[in-house]
Deep mutational scan, measured.
Amino acid sequence: MSIQHFRVALIPFFAAFCLPVFAHPETLVKVKDAEDQLGARVGYIELDLNSGKILESFRPEERFPMMSTFKVLLCGAVLSRVDAGQEQLGRRIHYSQNDLVEYSPVTEKHLTDGMTVRELCSAAITMSDNTAANLLLTTIGGPKELTAFLHNMGDHVTRLDRWEPELNEAIPNDERDTTMPAAMATTLRKLLTGELLTLASRQQLIDWMEADKVAGPLLRSALPAGWFIADKSGAGERGSRGIIAALGPDGKPSRIVVIYTTGSQATMDERNRQIAEIGASLIKHW
């Protein structure tokens, strides 16, 4: 067993022997301040990774656009098919120029040779490549099948209805392509620590998230040296922004954090800054 596999296998073990965790309302004060600064709703939840206990939450059962955070769930569904012998990570998928959609920095470079399922998941999570996500959605049967996968996990809230990039439209009061912070946090925890996926697939999923290259201005910008984070960000229309993450000190994750916002007129930089400040408060009061 590799060191990384050992780390993920012992996530519940280490967490069980940690000192009790206590909620700190100071972080919620910052979440509410972010709402004021952005002029928009902000949803927040913080779960203990081992027990699933909610440590703090704000608007945990209000719907927010998922945006690209759905790509972690998508690759979880792909990995479940791999575990069941219905898919192979090494299978190569070929596609054409007509398949390319807006923001496809990886797939646009491989029109000639195609990409493997493993490479597509890596591109979808680490670079948020939209064509990679659409190609992977095709392998599982489309958005409705991802929703069905989530329902089978016990998540009857999260739903995907459309493809990239239309799913980022974020129309107010439109339930399409949305989740709730509580539902997303619980589902992410199941994917990373539950028995739904094999140990190898859980490790692969967290490795992809740990290698995320496009979430630097968010929670990662607030992390002290030595902290662990595996995350996936999302951005959408109407001032929408979000991030889902597993993080913790001492090089291992111990909490799940989900943050979503929508309806702001603020710039992307300002949305990023507010999420980073929430992260800084979380870490300060850990």
Rank of each mutant, 00 (worst) to 15 (best):
Arg255His: 11
Asp113Glu: 06
His94Asp: 02
Ala182Leu: 11
Asp36Ile: 12
Gln274Glu: 11
Thr186Arg: 00
Glu56Pro: 07
Ser233Ala: 15
Pro249Val: 12
Arg41Ile: 14
Cys75Ile: 11
Asn173Cys: 12
Leu196Trp: 06
Thr139Met: 13
Asn272Ser: 09
Leu73Thr: 02
Glu108Lys: 10
Gly234Thr: 11
Ala148Val: 03
Ile244Met: 13
Ile244Cys: 13
Val82Ser: 02
Val117Asp: 12
Glu108Ile: 11
Phe58Thr: 03
Arg81Ser: 06
Phe58Gly: 03
Ala280Trp: 11
Leu146Tyr: 05
Phe70Arg: 02
Ser233Met: 15
Gly85Val: 06
Leu191Ser: 14
Ala183Arg: 00
Ile283Val: 06
Val31Trp: 11
Glu102Met: 00
Asp99Lys: 06
Asp129Met: 01
Arg220Phe: 10
Glu119His: 01
Gly194Asn: 02
Ser221Ala: 14
Ser221Leu: 14
Lys32Gly: 08
Ala246Val: 10
Glu61Arg: 01
Val214Met: 15
Pro165Phe: 07
Tyr95Asp: 15
Leu150Gly: 02
Arg220Leu: 12
Asp48Leu: 12
Ile171Met: 00
Gln37Gly: 05
Tyr260Phe: 13
Ala280Val: 12
Asn134Ser: 01
Ser96Asp: 07
Ser51Asn: 09
Leu150Cys: 07
Met180Ile: 14
Asp113Ala: 09
Phe64Gly: 04
Ile256His: 14
Lys284Trp: 03
Ser128Gly: 15
Glu35Phe: 09
Asn168Arg: 13
Leu188Pro: 14
Glu62His: 10
Thr147Arg: 00
Lys284Gln: 03
Ile93Trp: 07
Arg241Tyr: 14
Thr262Gly: 09
Thr138Ser: 10
Ile244Asn: 12
Tyr260Ser: 14
Asp250Arg: 08
Thr262Arg: 04
Thr131Gly: 11
Thr261Ser: 12
Ala280Gly: 11
Ala215Glu: 15
Gly279Val: 15
Ile206Asn: 12
Val258Cys: 13
Thr138Trp: 12
Ser281Arg: 11
Gly114His: 11
Asp33Cys: 03
Asp48Asn: 14
Met67Gly: 15
Gln274Cys: 14
Thr267Glu: 10
Glu277His: 10
Ala124Pro: 04
Ala124Arg: 03
Lys32Cys: 10
Ala183Gly: 07
Pro224Asn: 11
Leu223Arg: 10
Thr262Ile: 09
His285Cys: 01
Asp269Gly: 12
Ala200Tyr: 07
Lys144Ser: 02
Glu35Tyr: 12
His94Arg: 10
His285Lys: 07
Lys109His: 06
Ala84Asn: 02
Gln274His: 13
Ile259Met: 06
Asn130Glu: 10
Gly236Val: 08
Glu175Trp: 06
Lys109Cys: 03
Lys213Ile: 00
Leu188Lys: 15
Pro253Ser: 10
Gly248Trp: 06
Tyr95Ile: 11
Gln274Arg: 12
Glu46His: 10
Glu56His: 10
Ala123Val: 01
Leu38Phe: 01
Ala211Cys: 14
Glu108Arg: 07
Ala246Phe: 08
Gly194Lys: 00
Asp129Arg: 01
Leu55Lys: 09
Arg162Asp: 00
Ser233His: 15
Leu120Lys: 10
Thr69Trp: 06
Asp250Asn: 13
Leu49Cys: 00
Val82Ala: 03
Ala215Tyr: 15
Pro181Val: 02
Leu74Asp: 02
His110Trp: 00
Asp155Thr: 08
Thr126Met: 12
Leu55Met: 05
Arg241Cys: 14
Leu47Gly: 01
Asn272Lys: 12
Pro181Tyr: 05
Phe58Cys: 02
Asp83Thr: 02
Trp286Ile: 02
Pro253Tyr: 09
Gly239Tyr: 03
Trp227Lys: 09
Pro172Cys: 05
Lys144Val: 09
Asp33Lys: 07
Arg271Gly: 14
Phe149Cys: 01
Pro65Asp: 04
